[in-house]
Design a protein around this nucleic acid. Structure first.
Lengths: 274, 274
DNA sequence: CAAAATAAGTAATATAAGATACAGCGCCCC
DNA sequence: GGGGCGCTGTATCTTATATTACTTATTTTG
């Protein structure tokens, strides 16, 4: 069974003429980068002419060069999405536990790899500046994440509202939203129509949207000022929201730190109220 | 200092017009693959026109699109050659992000290290056998976890109830609980009096309690049939519930697998109802 | 509220890329 | 040593890609 193009090449390299073999070796030498460049660059790197490169990819079974490049890109995409589980114990079939944990750890690392400190700091700063109100809402499975975040934010600052219940209820809250306000939305596949509609209307009112979504980006990304794309793939019938959960916790921590002075006072007051 | 294009983007994304920001977000979402495709494909993925993509790369300081692609390829080459530096964004050390992520990863590993497959399998089996009802409840910050778990379990099996609202409301539900029923409780410091009282009464009625708590164990552990102790320490003003969240997801997956036959039928029925 | 400035998209253009046809060369077998 | 076959490179053509110019829409500012 041949799964990667690299395997395919080493499988057939024996039956290739000299020029094409040089092409193959050049590609393997720093796989798959050379294959992502143009035919001209590839041919120069291999020291052969461009038609030889084209004959080479044709021999591998590709109709044309772009098709070959797409295949390489797909392969690369798969690799980049699960960097660890590829290198680590592919055969450890133990219980149902460790694959799930491994996948989640990968997801976390991958998610944060695409997130810079700057981005998070920007979002945290936006959440911390108390110009307007903060609304949070989530989809069917992600609404608990919105609640979780709201529960924390509501302690360190005023005017934090979780939008719960039926669509009609939160739709009516739109009237209270304006340019100075923030709307935090959690939406992963399958994306919810009602949320998209809501986001669009909020956007039209000038509300700044912070979106937590999966790597395929909810359509709400169109309206969002900030987008956090978490990895959700796990060996389960359900998608995992763990990565988004951890990003949310990280943001909560960052906002808390920024509001430390004001927040501490507020927390003391809250303690007294009990 | 800016070393990667991803950093460059998140550095300037704030100063970009809406269309270019969408391009930036799309690229970051699965970096760097989208940038290696053609302008037309990139623009389609981002939902903008091709000139917007070109303006976007121009704003990043590149003379033209091929130059931008070359830069991405060079970066990719560097990454692929040193697999270690790939695990984490090299620029994100020292920021507020990576300590939080590191701590969370540690927490996950530690939590699962003290959790055997057997334990999880037992709990999953108990949740899967449909003898009685399943109730879920959480504390101030952990209630969203109870909701999250309930949202999933309620789809694959009947009689799953999340206990929400005021104490008096769920206290009254005790009357419906008996020996055949399960109560899943989430409780981390500072442990909630009301939850402890509730757990005790449920225990007296013979309800089997599954407790998600932190490593110092909520007093509810006295009454619990199964205890899951997650690590919660992170460099933040708040405790982290991420480890418990992932355990919950793992259990959801395991229960789903056990109920696969019955669950699949149920899910189909649910789809039809919509 | 009006005018200016800025963005975004459409359509046309220029350019660079991949594909093809053909000729030369070397190699192997007879 | 001669004839045939196969591989490789050069030059040309075609395709499709990036780019630019221009128009329309949107946002900002006085």
């Amino acid at each position: 069974m041949i799964s990667s193009i690299a395997e395919l090449i080493s499988d057939r390299i024996g039956a290739m003429p000299a020029g094409e073999r040089r092409a193959a070796q050049t590609l393997i030498a720093n796989y798959p980068l050379t294959g992502l460049k143009t035919v001209a660059e590839f041919s120069a790197a291999a020291g052969v002419s461009s038609p030889t490169i084209l004959r080479f990819v044709a021999r591998l079974g590709f109709q044309n060069y772009p098709e070959f490049q797409s295949a390489l890109q797909d392969e690369l995409a798969a690799q980049l999405q699960s960097p660890v589980s590829r290198t680590l114990n592919p055969g450890s079939t133990g219980g149902a536990v460790s694959p799930m944990l491994e996948a989640t750890l990968d997801n976390l690392r991958e998610t944060f790899r695409h997130l810079t400190d700057k981005q998070l700091a920007d979002i945290a700063a936006r959440l911390a500046e108390r110009r307007g109100k903060t609304f949070l809402i989530g989809g069917r499975f992600t609404d608990p994440l919105a609640r979780y975040m709201a529960a924390h934010l509501a302690i360190i600052q005023p005017d934090v509202y979780h939008l719960a219940g039926q669509e009609s209820i939160w739709r009516d809250r739109l009237i209270d939203m304006g340019k100075r306000d923030i709307l935090v939305i959690f939406d992963i596949r399958r994306y919810q129509e009602s949320l998209v509609r809501f986001a669009e209307k909020a956007h039209q009112r000038g509300v700044q949207i912070i979106l937590f979504t999966d790597q395929w980006l909810s359509p709400i990304a169109r309206f969002a000022r900030h987008v956090i794309a978490g990895r959700t793939a796990v060996p389960s019938a359900w998608d995992s929201s763990a990565a988004l959960f951890v990003v949310a916790e990280t943001l909560i921590g960052a906002v808390t730190r920024q509001l430390e002075a004001a927040g501490a006072k507020r927390i003391r007051e809250l303690e007294n109220l009990r």
